[in-house]
Deep mutational scan, measured.
Amino acid sequence: MAAGGDHGSPDSYRSPLASRYASPEMCFVFSDRYKFRTWRQLWLWLAEAEQTLGLPITDEQIQEMKSNLENIDFKMAAEEEKRLRHDVMAHVHTFGHCCPKAAGIIHLGATSCYVGDNTDLIILRNALDLLLPKLARVISRLADFAKERASLPTLGFTHFQPAQLTTVGKRCCLWIQDLCMDLQNLKRVRDDLRFRGVKGTTGTQASFLQLFEGDDHKVEQLDKMVTEKAGFKRAFIITGQTYTRKVDIEVLSVLASLGASVHKICTDIRLLANLKEMEEPFEKQQIGSSAMPYKRNPMRSERCCSLARHLMTLVMDPLQTASVQWFERTLDDSANRRICLAEAFLTADTILNTLQNISEGLVVYPKVIERRIRQELPFMATENIIMAMVKAGGSRQDCHEKIRVLSQQAASVVKQEGGDNDLIERIQVDAYFSPIHSQLDHLLDPSSFTGRASQQVQRFLEEEVYPLLKPYESVMKVKAELCL
């Protein structure tokens, strides 16, 4: 049975990233139509530049190519590739079939990587351009969430054990800070992308030097003109047959890092959902379990974690691919890159769409948070109580021993009897502590235990987050809708 299948058929496997999760716009960027249309555009740009620099290419040939950029006979191309065992030459023939007058000058002087690699770089750039505003929107939604809850005390956790208090907004800023680093890295790697350009079979530009009869300047002009037509500021000066596969490492490393950030955020949300302090959106008709109707599973956060793990592992592909590119190139890269580049971007696209949807509907339960604080705060307040007693004339050592005994009794009630923490009640009825009984409410005010959390939130948002989001103001209103 021949390899390949009808990918629109229910009898043929289709990647869930495309069929179930990723956005239509990201799927289109990695589609065959987008790819092969870009090949034709690159052939047109090459012909236009070659004509401008004096090669015998007519206006009629150029116009014929322009008129057929979208006229792609995919069936013919597939048949040609089956016959020739070469995808680029299959599309040269297919393009030439609908451009008979231009057929002889299509791909003039070029090698397969002229269309293959340059198209990949265009796709990487455009895919990054799709991700950047999506990530900015996630940051914006979380920034709104953090600002609104900047002063809401909550129990902090280290080692997932109760620690000092923080605020809900401050905790959210930990998430935002990681995503801001990801946004900066995505922008950097996007701006650092260079075009492969017009380089020939081993990167020496020998074929173009021959076409222009040894004119170095025209060869350099050709490279520059096509690079500018493709919208790049610069091209690699040095290439082998391909652009260095280190570029793929750079791009997928940034995406993998984004995956790590999203995994951490969504894990926190899942843990908070278990504590009943916070939940992701839950639709009115949504079913959490087929057997347990009360369940409210954090399905979206779980999906993000599941896909983020996949995204983090994909960076190993370009690392290994770059390491086995012998001399000017081997074909070890080809099949692998067809999979890992598309999957990385479709996965990143999915987790950003999902995280935006989550961040637009996060639900906080202040009463649950308050109750958990009441359970733990008495123990945390013991040092403040000791200091207040010393100020009232008591002995630190005597007070410490009193607190120690009462704390152990209260802990026994919590752990052995399943009761509430009654340390404060014990202190309130103990005559030894009568000098500070009137101060206990103040000493137990949760806001006095959150330090500068709310001020940190305000400063972080104003100095770091809002300036970073400013270039994306025009796209901030787009909502994230999930079908599944």
Rank of each mutant, 00 (worst) to 15 (best):
I351V: 06
K170W: 09
E464I: 13
S289A: 03
G394P: 15
C180P: 05
R149M: 12
L461Y: 01
F74T: 01
E425A: 11
M389K: 13
D268F: 14
S112L: 03
P162K: 08
A18G: 15
P435H: 09
W43C: 11
R309C: 11
G200L: 01
F449H: 07
K479V: 00
R37M: 05
L124V: 12
L209P: 10
S140W: 00
P24E: 14
R337F: 07
T38Y: 15
I176D: 08
I72T: 06
L183K: 10
S474N: 13
L53Q: 02
L186K: 05
E79Q: 07
G156V: 09
S323K: 01
G240F: 03
H107T: 13
V457Q: 13
L377C: 09
F433S: 11
N353Y: 02
A260D: 02
K246T: 06
Q408C: 15
P100A: 05
L468S: 14
C266G: 14
A411C: 05
R83P: 08
M76W: 02
V390C: 02
T202R: 05
G8F: 13
E25W: 05
M312S: 06
D223Q: 15
L183N: 00
S395H: 12
G197F: 03
A480C: 13
K134I: 07
P298Q: 05
E79G: 06
I176T: 06
Q161K: 00
E220M: 14
I385F: 09
T239M: 01
C172L: 00
L341T: 05
N274Q: 07
D333T: 00
V254D: 11
F30D: 09
G5I: 12
S434H: 06
Q161A: 02
Y472D: 11
L53S: 10
V413R: 00
Q320A: 08
M312G: 07
Q161M: 01
I106L: 06
L186M: 14
Y466N: 02
S290C: 10
E60S: 09
G109L: 01
L377H: 11
E250T: 05
E425S: 06
L53C: 05
M225V: 13
M65F: 00
F433N: 01
D59R: 08
D422P: 01
G197M: 10
A388D: 06
E48S: 11
M225W: 15
D248T: 08
D117E: 04
E277Q: 04
V115F: 10
A47L: 05
E81I: 09
D422K: 15
W43I: 01
E462I: 15
L444E: 02
S306P: 10
Q205V: 00
V390L: 06
T166P: 04
D441E: 11
L311C: 08
R137G: 13
L121S: 10
D216E: 02
D333P: 15
S412I: 12
E401Q: 01
L155I: 03
L130R: 07
V254T: 11
K229N: 07
A49V: 09
W39R: 00
D430R: 01
K391Q: 08
D430P: 09
G169N: 01
T52G: 04
A235T: 11
D129P: 15
R338C: 06
Q320T: 00
L352C: 07
A335T: 08
I238K: 12
V138D: 10
S447V: 02
Y466E: 00
G394S: 05
G8S: 13
A410M: 13
C304M: 08
D32S: 12
W175L: 03
L406H: 12
Q456A: 14
K82I: 08
V478Y: 09
L469F: 02
I287M: 05
N297R: 10
N297C: 05
F282A: 14
I436W: 10
Q63K: 08
M312E: 14
C305W: 07
L183F: 09
S140N: 08
C304S: 11
A150S: 02
E328K: 02
L108D: 09
S438E: 00
L440E: 00
Q205H: 06
K295N: 13
Q408N: 14
M89V: 05
G393Y: 03
R171D: 02
P153V: 02
